[in-house]
Amino acid sequence: MQLQAETKHTEHSEFVSFTVAGQAFCLQITQIREIRRWQPVTVLPHAPADVLGVMNLRGAVIPIYDLSARFGLQQTEASERNVVIVVSVNDKPVGLLAESVSEIISIDPDDIQETPQVDSRNTMDFIQGIISQNDEMVRIINLNAVISSPEQVSL
């Protein structure tokens, strides 16, 4: 995934940026299936803090993760203003709760910078690169690290 983003694309790639706990993150537009307004989900008993529950997506049961909690930031108090970004991981739909969606960024892959080494290993694994956009740092999420596989989410 990382290689793909960094070397394979010579043309501009499009990213969707959004905020999670006040920080700017983004995902490649091709990874996103749809974006939905937050609706209360069904809680899974004994679920860890970053698993919000499950949602009905046109007849399919899909798990919803709180990105903020996943990144080790504070838990999101989900409300109507928030959004659920539905992505595909291993061909299965998964919902990610974010505060709000910002914009679509078109960027030359060469402009993607490597993540500088910082102490927080947990965060490091989830970020595969950073983009500078309007003097703001936008973190590119490594989706496969965030959700390695739905089955592997320990409950």
């Binding site: 499950v54 089955e151 989410v153 320990s154 409950l155």
Partner: peptide, 14 residues
């Protein structure tokens, strides 16, 4: 719930 969230104690499906 297979493949959605693993085994949930006390829950068989949705």
């Amino acid at each position: 719930l297979d493949g959605v969230c693993g085994n949930v104690p006390g829950v068989s499906a949705a």
